[in-house]
Computed example of a mutant assay.
Amino acid sequence: MSVSGRAAPSTSLASTATSALRAAAESGDADAVAELLAPGVVFHSPMTDRVRFEGKEEVAALHRDIFAVLDDLETTEALALGDSRSFSFRARVRGVDLEAHVLLHVNEQGQIDELKIFVRPLPALATLFAVLPPRVSARRRGRLTGAVAAYLTGPLAFVVRTADRFTPRFL
């Protein structure tokens, strides 16, 4: 089955926004990400359903935190369905290889209004969980709260990375 004709304007707006997001992510440019976001954008945490980041300023600030903890971020070509896009990226967090999958939606104005990110493998997610929430907590609620978040999340990353080294030997 072939598809002919010109793409709908929203589809090309979605492609443009996605390409710009990928470029901004690869260069670690949170200000460029901010320019792509709708005022009411929602970012769903890859770590918990209990936290969502809402609004252009908060999601842009979150990206500053994300780019501060990820190294060597590289994206893949996007997949498209209507106004939704999906792409993957690889990065490193504290020396641990991370793979992630991004789902996003673009509104009629060509702005990203929803982001969902899924992260694997578990040691990378646990390491991200140990690094990112303390940083975000410190920014949003103060250094003491950030220190408490680090105290709570650090042991999980250690246990998961250690289990990942030894458990495969038993499989």
Rank of each mutant, 00 (worst) to 15 (best):
F129L: 14
A20L: 06
I112H: 06
A30K: 01
D97V: 02
R52D: 10
E99A: 01
P39W: 05
A17R: 04
K56T: 12
R135K: 12
A163N: 05
A24V: 04
L103P: 02
Q109P: 05
S12M: 11
V96E: 04
L13A: 06
T11H: 09
F170N: 06
G154Y: 04
P133Y: 07
E35G: 15
D72G: 04
D29H: 10
V59F: 08
T75H: 09
G95Q: 07
V33M: 02
A80C: 00
A24D: 04
T76H: 01
A150W: 14
L98N: 05
V160S: 02
R141I: 02
V59L: 04
A60K: 03
Y151K: 10
R85K: 07
L37N: 03
Q111V: 05
A20Y: 02
S45C: 13
G55C: 03
V59W: 09
T127A: 10
L21S: 01
R143E: 12
R64N: 00
L79A: 13
A61I: 05
T76Y: 05
H44R: 15
T76A: 07
V136A: 04
S84T: 14
D83F: 06
L156V: 08
V41I: 10
D164N: 11
V106S: 00
T75G: 06
R85D: 06
V59Y: 08
A25D: 03
V136K: 04
A14H: 03
A68E: 06
E77Y: 03
E58C: 08
R139L: 03
E26N: 02
L156P: 00
D31Y: 05
G5V: 02
F43Y: 15
L152F: 09
H44I: 13
P9N: 10
L122I: 01
R85P: 05
P133Q: 11
L21H: 07
F67G: 08
S45E: 15
H105R: 15
L104N: 05
Y151H: 14
Q111P: 10
L13V: 00
E74H: 11
A124W: 08
V51M: 14
H105D: 13
F118S: 12
R120V: 10
L156Y: 03
F170W: 12
L128F: 14
F89S: 10
A8P: 06
R165P: 00
E77K: 10
L62H: 08
I117D: 14
H101S: 11
A124D: 01
A17L: 04
M47L: 15
T11E: 14
V93H: 15
R52A: 09
A100S: 11
D113Q: 12
T16A: 08
R6S: 14
